[in-house]
């Protein structure tokens, strides 16, 4: 298979549950790397802690499996010291936006050339199904037996407001978009955020009576639409998919190199 060369096959079958969306993200992310023909010795994957973060163990790139919420902090260090490497940072919604929320907004603001992937299953999968800042209201979790009253973040609005220069969203159902948006993000010379709605049938699906993995995927098909579509105008509840921003701004590592240059000349 085209993507076999990017896998550490000795760790398969992987630990994710049957039907977990995180595997679909891995599958189609590797196709992006393959289509761009990026040398795997020049790819670095940095992850934190969570089911989603286990992804870094399965890829035959340079990989760092770090601390919960701190993937972007470690990725920043890697990129500052080796700006020629391509750095990708897959995170869970809890990892990226609960414990890691502060790192996330500041990474967006700096505009360093990193690719952040948020694998958003709206729950803490690894620790047994506690609600996250992405669960939204009316959700049953182990920590909300009477359903959540907390409102959710909108990852897209948060990324845009914080200054990310490439921002996109899709779902585990829309596999071609996963590959295409990650390709765009990897090529973008600045901070990229790709949110991918990813099903957790084991905790989110089961507790919220959303059926099995296939039913959860069908829900992504029904509940989402392309940005600015007619369907969205008719039904504002639909979640938009697509590229929300793609623009260039001064990139942090380039600015830093420039600063060193200036200091050496003065």
């Amino acid at each position: 298979m085209a993507i076999d060369q990017y896998l550490r096959k000795r760790f398969f079958p992987h630990i994710w549950c049957a039907g977990c969306g995180h595997g679909i993200v891995l599958n189609n992310m590797l196709r992006a790397v393959d289509q761009l023909q990026i040398n795997q010795n020049e790819m670095v994957m940095v992850s934190g802690i969570g089911c989603s973060s286990r992804i870094s163990g399965y890829v035959d790139f340079h990989s760092l499996h770090t601390l919960h919420g701190r993937a972007l902090a470690f990725a920043t260090g890697v990129k500052m010291s080796q700006p020629n490497l391509t750095v990708i940072c897959p995170m869970g919604d809890g990892d990226a936006l609960a414990i890691g929320g502060n790192h996330f907004i500041h990474a967006c603001r700096r505009n360093m050339d990193l690719t952040a992937i948020v694998m958003n299953n709206r729950i803490y999968g690894m620790t047994g199904g506690q609600f996250s800042p992405l669960s939204g209201t009316g959700i049953t979790a182990t920590t909300s037996p009477q359903k959540t009253i907390d409102r959710e973040f909108d990852i897209i609005s948060l990324s845009l407001a914080s200054g990310a220069t490439f921002v996109a969203r899709t779902t585990a159902y829309h596999y071609k978009e996963i590959t295409n948006y990650i390709k765009e993000a990897l090529q973008h010379p600045g901070f990229s955020v790709v949110e991918i709605l990813s099903q957790c049938p084991t905790h989110f699906g089961r507790r919220n009576k959303q059926g099995d993995a296939t039913e959860m995927l069908q829900r992504y098909r029904q509940n989402t639409t392309s940005i600015g579509s007619e369907a969205k105008q008719k039904n504002p509840e639909l979640i938009e998919r697509g590229i929300f921003r793609q623009e260039t701004a001064p990139e942090y590592c380039a600015e830093y190199a420039e600063l060193i240059n200036r200091a050496q000349q003065s």
Binding site: W16, H22, G23, I24, Y175, K176
Partner: peptide
Amino acid sequence: CERMCPDL
């Protein structure tokens, strides 16, 4: 099937 298999 190839692209949607979570287990590759």
